[in-house]
Design a protein around this nucleic acid. Structure first.
Lengths: 181, 181
DNA sequence: GTCTATATACAGATAGAC
DNA sequence: GTCTATCTGTATATAGAC
């Protein structure tokens, strides 16, 4: 997993950005190339097909998710709180990746769906030891899914965090109280 | 709001079905016409453009959601439980409508996003009097969003209910206990 | 109301110069 | 490694017969 060329990363960033702002339909090779600042031919040198480009975004999302899980299990304020905070969109690299991959999944890309399931399973495994039972686990997972979904829904400009800090803290406290082991 | 022609409804059903099974990208006029059992020309007689077809699905979704809210507030087992049960995919007409409109929203259709927001606001208003505070309200709403998201994610054949009845009942009990007024 | 045939536009991908 | 030019398939929409 050596550091990939910077141009590749730039193209992946551009793809995620266009998918987020214009939807998957707007993420044409032309549009991605333009945002990345290269020609279509230049883009196709790095990713030989649109499918390769999509797979690149999916793979990078999963790599980023692994790092996220590592941070969550090690969080000082507890995995549940850390997980919920990481589910609120802060426009982190992982957030951008998940938005893009979710859009691919909803447009029928099977690898995207598989990758999201794997990531969700990783999170589930990390949270399970810290909640009292399976219902509590599902509650935490579903709230997280809901947080993502609400933000993923909005195509266009960044909506900004829907919850301000006091609201989020109150919600986290409620979830922790309802689910702690 | 008189009863629209049956052919129109058939076409809207076909659009929702194709969007669900193949994603928004697969929902071409050709594919919709084929599933609806008409030619492309026949389809375009009822909906003069793809945009008109999409708007038709969005409008029908909102009409169905209004009926759903009416049923939820009148439910004998309480609005919170009824709302959560209605959030589990049972392949009801409203479910099919919301899946399709969510896909449109995620592909940048602004009217779809607006309609979903309005529907979500209606649900929020119906649930608010039955939970203790805003955090509890958000918990219920986010769990519902999460239930929808998980099902909306899977393109292809119906995944079937992810929760069996005992699991769902336990989750509902937990949410109600955590949020009741 | 429903059909076939066709016009127009645009997407993904290739070829080859630099 | 990056570019321009071009081929090819497919999607929306129109025209007009039945």
């Amino acid at each position: 997993m050596s550091r990939p060329p910077r141009a590749r990363e730039t193209v992946l960033d551009a793809f995620e950005q266009v998918v987020r702002s214009d939807g998957e339909r707007g993420a044409t090779m032309d549009a991605v190339a333009r945002v990345a600042g290269v020609s279509k031919g230049g883009l196709l040198y790095h990713f030989a097909s649109k499918d390769a480009l999509e797979n690149g975004v999916i793979e990078r999302m999963e790599e980023r998710a692994v790092l996220d899980v590592e941070q969550i299990v090690a969080a000082s304020d507890g995995p549940v709180a850390a997980f919920m905070r990481s589910s609120i969109m802060t426009d982190s690299p992982l957030d951008r990746s998940i938005i893009a991959v979710s859009r691919l999944a909803q447009n029928g890309h099977p690898l995207a769906t598989d990758a999201l399931r794997r990531v969700r399973d990783m999170w589930e495994g990390a949270i399970r030891p810290h909640v009292r039972d399976e219902s509590a686990l599902q509650l935490v997972m579903l709230v997280s899914d809901g947080l993502y979904f609400n933000n993923a829904l909005t195509v266009g400009a960044l909506p900004g965090p829907k919850f301000d800090e006091p609201e989020l803290a109150a919600l986290i406290a409620l979830v922790e109280h309802s689910t702690h082991a």
